[in-house]
């Protein structure tokens, strides 16, 4: 198998047939995995922030939840995916810096805000989330295998888990 395609911050990558898409080290970012099992088309967006400050000047659509979701759908539709039947899994939105003085530490709730914004953006396009691994204190690496539709999540201290399989049963559907 070819080496995985890295989806950097604010990037969106789509693939058809084979390959692996991956976001390494999602902190408060969110990786949105989308899959059309009938066509074998997969997409992965690496969202940084909840919403665009100024919708007219967005340098990278994949940066924000509200612009990233429509762009992910557009790119997948371009490959021939049926965007009304996409299966979705979301991963990330952690609060990574967990040690500190309670109360005096900076308010770092961007992860939680990202989760909310991504869920809203997906609701807006009538897509349901089939599996999620979000929140908490751990950074995550997510990989989406295009051929099998398997979504795997890795963290520093725990073994890799299979979050879901878009083509088969959903073992850990949330």
């Amino acid at each position: 198998m070819s080496s995985p395609v890295l989806v950097g911050m604010a990037d969106i990558k789509v693939a058809k047939g084979t390959g692996t898409l991956t976001c390494v080290g999602l902190g408060s970012c969110i990786g949105i995995c989308a899959f059309d099992s009938s066509q074998g088309i997969a997409g992965l967006a690496h969202i940084m922030l909840p919403e665009a400050f100024d919708k007219n000047h967005v340098d990278k659509l994949g940066k924000f939840a509200d612009t990233g979701v429509p762009e992910l759908l557009r790119q997948m539709a371009e490959l021939g995916a049926n965007t009304r039947r996409l299966q979705i899994a979301i991963v990330g939105g952690a609060q990574v810096f967990k040690f500190g003085t309670p109360g005096t530490a900076p308010k770092m709730d961007i992860g939680a805000r990202n989760i909310e914004a991504v869920q809203k953006a997906l609701r807006d396009v009538n897509l349901q989330i089939q599996a999620k691994d979000v929140g908490g204190n751990l950074g995550r690496t997510v990989t989406l295998d295009v051929a099998t539709g398997t979504v795997k999540v890795r963290t520093v201290s725990k073994a890799e888990i299979v979050l879901c399989n878009f083509k088969g049963a959903m073992p850990l559907a949330a």
Binding site: M9, V24, G25, L26, G27, S28, C29, M48, L49, K63, A94, V96, F97, K98, F99, G100, T101, T104, A105, P106, M108, I110, N137, L138, G139, R140, T141, T155, V156
Partner: peptide, 23 residues
């Protein structure tokens, strides 16, 4: 400001910092 600490993947921490700053 008071410091906060994390033990995690390097890129997850740097990404978090980048996000805080990107606002």
């Amino acid at each position: 400001s008071p410091p906060v600490m994390s033990v995690d993947m390097m890129s997850a921490m740097l990404a978090t910092m980048a996000i805080e700053a990107s606002q």
